[in-house]
């Protein structure tokens, strides 16, 4: 009889009423397939069960005093057997940066990269189609798959894409700004966590990865761009973005994480 000297704990008493009630329910439900007499019996059992149940709830017999038996062994403190993992200890595998760039650095890097990046694309547009609007219109194709009337001939399509369209221009600038800013933010967060030089990751590895992805999925994501894109200038533009953003991010002051 351990504990605070308590001898008994009050608990609900065992009762057959729930079983009787359940039996009543199942007999009621058996009626449609067996015999309606079953349902009648079930209703009687249901009433008996509920009455017994209510009796348990409203009289002292519904409770019994359970005698207290010997309790569990007391839990003992195990002093000094725990040590938190710290960098340098064997088994410590997390590689978390102790310092990181502020989010503004990533945003800045993304936007600067975004400003420089279009230059190769615009040069391509000027040389190949004598129009800087050609690549701008292509970019807007991300959200407007039915940009060009497909019944037009190839030359008519090119003529359409080479002209200035204010709506497509705003759309393209927005898309470009959002993608640049989000990639920049990812740079700001990711670059300090990667081993080695950030410029290698941000300037070469990552642009290579997403350029490969774009190459594979362009047909689905932006069919117009897929049909008209000039891959060399496209790839150059990606690296311009990656290198610029990585440099801007890497040059900002790091703050404690």
């Amino acid at each position: 009889m351990a504990g605070d000297g308590r001898q008994k704990v009050e608990m609900p008493a065992a009762t057959v009423s729930p079983f009787v009630l359940a039996l009543g329910i199942v007999l009621i439900f058996a009626g449609p397939v067996l015999s309606w007499a079953m349902t009648a019996t079930g209703i009687v059992l249901l009433i008996v069960g509920i009455s017994g149940w209510v009796g348990q709830l409203t009289s002292p017999e519904g409770q019994i005093e359970e005698p207290v038996v010997a309790g569990p062994k007391p839990i003992e403190g195990i002093a000094g057997r725990v040590e938190a993992l710290r960098p340098g200890m064997p088994g410590y595998r997390a590689r978390l940066p102790e310092k990181m760039h502020p989010y503004s650095a990533g945003l800045k890097g993304g936007l600067v990269g975004g400003v420089l990046m279009p230059i190769p694309a615009l040069i391509f547009g000027l040389i190949a189609y004598r129009s800087i609007w050609f690549p701008v219109n292509l970019l807007a194709g991300v959200v407007l798959p039915q940009l060009v009337d497909e019944t037009l001939s190839a030359t008519e399509q090119v003529a359409y894409l080479s002209a200035f369209h204010p709506g497509l221009f705003i759309g393209a600038v927005l898309i470009h700004a959002v993608i640049s800013a989000s990639l920049g933010l990812m740079y700001g967060v990711m670059l300090p966590t990667l081993p080695g030089r950030p410029i290698i990751w941000g300037g070469i590895v990552l642009p290579l990865l997403w350029t490969g992805f774009s190459y594979g999925f362009m047909g689905v994501l932006n069919p117009i761009l897929h049909d008209h894109v000039d891959w060399p200038s496209f790839v150059v533009a990606q690296f311009v973005f990656g290198i610029t953003a990585a440099i801007v991010v890497a040059r900002t002051e790091q703050i404690p994480a």
């Binding site: 704990v9 009050e10 709830l57 409770q63």
Partner: peptide, 8 residues
Amino acid sequence: MNHASDSL
């Protein structure tokens, strides 16, 4: 559903 709930 009863005053046992108090002791539970």
